[in-house]
Amino acid sequence: MAAQAPAIEVPTDAELLQAQADLWRHTLYYLTSMGLRCAVKLGIPTAMHKLGGVTSLPDLADALSIPASKQPFLGRLMRALVTSGVFAAGGKDESGAELFRLNPLSRVLVDDVVADEHHSQTSFVLAGTSPHYMEAALGMADWFKKDVAGPVPSVFEDVHSASLFDESTAALDPELDALVTEGLEAHDNLGIGTIMRECHDLFKGLESLTDCCGGDGKTARAITKAHPHVKCTVLDLPKVIEKTPSDCVVNYVAGDLFHTVPKAQAVMLKLVLHHWSDDDCVKILTQCKNAIPSREEGGKVIVIDIVVEPSLGPVMFEAQTLMDLLMLVFTRGRQRSENDWRDLFMKAGFTDYKIIKKLGARGVIEVYK
């Protein structure tokens, strides 16, 4: 005889109505992402910036060359994006039209602005909402059911037979590869100024530093500008370094951080390790340990990465857990708690570490051999 299913607990009327609203939100969250993608593709943040950061719907539609027949629909899109926090609204113009405004989130989506600390995140949005990304995310359930021997591939690898940040991505779709590279660079460089201001002593007394996976050297140049006494070297893959124009400020080295890291007093890993499995992180950290002197000689590894922590509050914690799902679907890595980081450092042979600052979802960690 088949086992009888347990009785289900029936929600109260109020709970049921709230559950229905929550179900709508969670099922349809992707429409917020698609609305954000639409705003970026239309150039709404940039148009608003050129209009002084505040605009009415008719003026915005005119700036975007939106046909009059579509203006009411544009209003509905803007209402949804204001509700989700992408834009702000408030006040009316002389004609009584509602005014929409840029806020901190939409300001980082403004293109065509030259400023030391402005790194537009439009590529991050377009990569994260691209068809290839969506298709990979749709493959999660099938991925979970597959048993595999050896290292577990990402969902993206399983669906597309390609790895992000690898030559296989370019073979899959050159446009996607370029977008992912641009998005990663913009994401990683956002907040450099904050790190310089909030962690000024992090680089105090250093004579040399190697920035692993430092890309085109934006972070290294920011460090050198704030601390001219620090000689910075950027280590990255040959395909990255060969596209980077040489300068007299930063030394560029083509290589693989799994095999060699240029020796320096400090080695920095900024938003690098969350892309890799625990085993790979230990290998990377071991190479970094071999590249630095002892703690007594000022040697250290600087890790700037997400430190998952519920105490940061529900919004920040949700952002961290979403970033962890991003790693699950698109890489073999993960986001880590302080205990997870401690385990990695000890396995790689380090003797001590300290989190010197928490900046939003990220932590700045000094690790000593």
Score class of each variant (00 low, 15 high):
residue 300 K to D: 03
residue 325 L to W: 09
residue 339 N to G: 10
residue 351 T to I: 04
residue 94 E to L: 09
residue 73 F to D: 12
residue 35 G to Y: 09
residue 110 V to R: 04
residue 95 S to H: 12
residue 175 E to A: 11
residue 110 V to F: 10
residue 81 L to I: 06
residue 77 L to I: 15
residue 162 A to I: 06
residue 232 C to G: 02
residue 245 P to E: 02
residue 303 V to G: 06
residue 15 E to A: 13
residue 142 D to R: 14
residue 243 K to V: 00
residue 260 T to F: 09
residue 77 L to T: 11
residue 124 F to K: 07
residue 275 H to T: 03
residue 338 E to Y: 00
residue 26 H to W: 12
residue 26 H to P: 00
residue 299 G to Y: 07
residue 25 R to N: 05
residue 115 A to I: 01
residue 18 Q to S: 05
residue 197 R to Y: 01
residue 43 G to A: 12
residue 141 A to Q: 11
residue 13 D to V: 05
residue 323 M to I: 05
residue 134 M to P: 00
residue 166 D to P: 03
residue 181 T to Y: 01
residue 6 P to E: 07
residue 120 S to E: 08
residue 330 F to R: 07
residue 194 T to L: 02
residue 214 G to C: 04
residue 125 V to A: 13
residue 73 F to M: 11
residue 279 D to V: 08
residue 39 A to D: 13
residue 270 K to E: 08
residue 129 T to S: 15
residue 57 L to W: 09
residue 207 E to L: 00
residue 280 D to K: 12
residue 274 H to A: 13
residue 96 G to T: 06
residue 73 F to Q: 10
residue 8 I to T: 03
residue 187 H to R: 11
residue 173 D to V: 01
residue 220 A to P: 00
residue 147 D to S: 09
residue 38 C to Q: 15
residue 345 F to T: 05
residue 211 D to N: 05
residue 268 M to T: 05
residue 60 L to W: 15
